[in-house]
């Protein structure tokens, strides 16, 4: 890897991070993994390819809502950023089809914690 310089770090503007991007983030800390986040993450990767749903799928740490793990955060243009909790493999597939493709939010899985 190329060595970083002061300028590389200084020129970054955190406010511009993630603007206009579509992504799904899966909470993959010990708490999430224990609740089944690994399975959900793999399901999202596989199914999005199989179903031709174009979305960037990433891992992240723990958001803190442990009672609602596994947590999946979804950002799709035109819809608010949404945090889904207690996500299973099936719910993950529904997220791809309903939320990402058809731009409809899912019932009963959204957690508005903060």
């Amino acid at each position: 890897m190329k060595k970083l310089t002061k300028g590389d770090i200084e020129k970054v503007d955190p406010a511009k991070k993630d603007i206009g991007k579509n992504w799904i983030k899966v909470g993959m800390s010990t708490c999430g993994v224990a609740a089944g986040a690994g399975e959900v993450y793999l399901a999202l990767l596989e199914e999005s390819k199989k179903r031709n749903v174009e979305i960037d799928i990433r891992k992240c740490g723990c958001q803190g809502a442990c009672s609602a793990e596994p947590l999946v955060e979804v950002n799709v243009e035109g819809l608010p950023k949404v945090l889904y909790g207690r996500v299973t493999k099936d719910v993950a597939i529904t997220i791809l089809e309903r939320h990402v493709r058809n731009k409809k939010l899912l019932h009963d899985y959204i957690f508005e914690i903060n």
Partner: peptide, 9 residues
């Protein structure tokens, strides 16, 4: 769009 959600804080 109407959405029933699991927790509203």
């Amino acid at each position: 769009q109407l959405v029933k959600i699991a927790d509203i804080g």
